[in-house]
Simulated scan of single mutants.
Amino acid sequence: MDKLAQAFNFRHACKKFDDTQKINQQDIEYILEAGRLSPSSFGMEPWHFIVVNNNELKKQLRAVCYNQEQVTSCSHFVIVLYRKANNFTLQSDYLRRTIARTLPDATDQTAIDIACQAFINFYQQGLADGLSINHWSEMQGYIACTNMMTAAAYRGIDSCAIGGFEHDKLIQILENNIALFSKETFGVGLCLAFGYRANEPDSHIRWPLADITTYLTETN
């Protein structure tokens, strides 16, 4: 079994961390770098990572995450934000700077206008019924989350993805602790707890590959 396969088999949803063990800075940055380098639709990278290793703040967060123990027993708690609709208007500084990176001339405002409008047309007309640009942005963040959890497992670090939280109350905690944070600009997609397991996990339960795979092949 190669190292990547070992990481997939090592990773599990760790519900109880050993709170005496802390992740070093080099390893936490390795995990975050996996998120930073993740693919995203149109290369928008519509995420931001809040890293919490303050015990008092983790206690506050646990209260709005339905008292899940892993929030406070983990070494580092990462809140993965997604950018909301006001980041994706023609006048948005974020959208214009993101688009400009991909153009031959990053100062050509007409070219930036055209490329930005093409993206706006996509999300106004091309998303599935019922989906908004906020939904699209949140889904991009899940890609980064997956890569961060895999990178952690590759280093022998455990993780747990937490989608069970009171969104508005979590947002309020962020507004109280981050001066420039705005609920108009960001939403919370997922939270990730990282640390070292206190107990050995049960075996993975997964469907066999044959049950979840359909091949469409050429016929002679």
Rank of each mutant, 00 (worst) to 15 (best):
M148F: 07
Y30G: 08
Q26A: 15
A5M: 07
R206W: 00
A13M: 13
Q124Y: 00
N220E: 12
N24R: 11
F119Q: 11
A161E: 01
K22S: 15
T20F: 14
F194V: 06
S92K: 04
W47V: 14
F186C: 10
K59W: 04
E200W: 01
A144M: 08
F181W: 05
L90H: 02
V80N: 08
F194S: 09
V78F: 06
G164A: 13
S92E: 02
Q25I: 14
L103S: 10
E29P: 04
F49E: 10
C74G: 06
V64T: 12
A115N: 11
K183E: 11
I114T: 15
D202G: 01
S41Q: 03
W207Q: 08
G130L: 11
P201V: 07
G164S: 07
T107C: 09
Y94A: 06
G187Q: 02
G126C: 02
I143V: 13
R83C: 10
N24H: 15
G43L: 00
I23Q: 10
A13R: 02
P208V: 05
T217G: 08
R62F: 08
C14M: 14
A151Y: 09
E175Y: 00
L61G: 05
G43R: 01
N220L: 10
P104G: 11
C191M: 09
N67Y: 12
T20A: 15
F42E: 04
T98L: 01
I157T: 07
